[in-house]
Write a protein that binds this DNA or RNA. Sequence first.
DNA 1: CTAACATATGTTCAACTGTTCATATGTTCA
DNA 2: TGAACATATGAACAGTTGAACATATGTTAG
Lengths: 95, 95
Amino acid sequence: MEDKLYDLADLFKVFGDSTRVRLLYELLSGEKNVGDLSDALNMNQSAVSHQLRLLKQSDLVKVRRDGKSMYYALSDDHVESIIKIGMEHITEKKK
Amino acid sequence: MEDKLYDLADLFKVFGDSTRVRLLYELLSGEKNVGDLSDALNMNQSAVSHQLRLLKQSDLVKVRRDGKSMYYALSDDHVESIIKIGMEHITEKKK
DNA sequence: CTAACATATGTTCAACTGTTCATATGTTCA
DNA sequence: TGAACATATGAACAGTTGAACATATGTTAG
C-alpha cells in the first residue's frame, strides 16, 4: 500500500501543472493534434510536445499518427472523473 | 473556465507529493495529531507540520486543538474520491 | 531523391519545492 | 510563574521542474 501511495503522488504530479491540465481539458472535447493544441494554449510546439510526452507516460493520453500529424486523445475516463471532482472541491471551497 | 484550470492545477499540486498523499491516507482512518502523523510517516515534526499547513490552505484538512495537541482530519469526502479514482487508474495501468 | 511540414528530443537555466535546523508560540500542570 | 511538552514558523540549501532554443526524426508530395 505504501508503494501505491508513491505511485499515486506521481500520478497527481502530472495533473499538478497548468499546462498539462489545460491540455487534458482541451482533449475532453475530442482528439486533437499537436499543432491544434499549441494554438489553443498559445504555447510553442516544443513545450506542448514535452508535456504531451509526460501525459503519455502516465497513460492519461494515447496517440495515433495520421500522415504528418499526431493525434492525441484521452486514454480513459478517469481523467474526466478526476477533473470533475477536483472542480467540485474548488467550487465548494469558495462558498 | 481558463482561470479554474489554473486553480485545478494548484489543487492537484497538493496531491502531487508523497508526503502529503501519505498524510491524507493516514487521515482516511480518522483524525490524528501531529505526533501520531510524524510517527506514522517516520518524519520529523517540522516537515509534517509544514506539509499539513499546505493541506490546510487547500481546505483538504481541518484542525482542532485538544490541549497541547492539534488534531487534523479530512475536511470533506472529495479527498477520498480523488484518491480512489487515482488508485483505479494506477491499478488498471498495470494490466 | 529532396523540400516542406509536423512532431520529438536533448540541453540549458531560472524558478520553485521539500526537508532540515533553529527558534518561536501556545498549553498544561505543579 | 516556570518547566515540559506539542506544534508552528522562518531561513537556508539541495534537488526538481517547465520553458525555450536548437536540432533530429519521420512523413508526404512532387
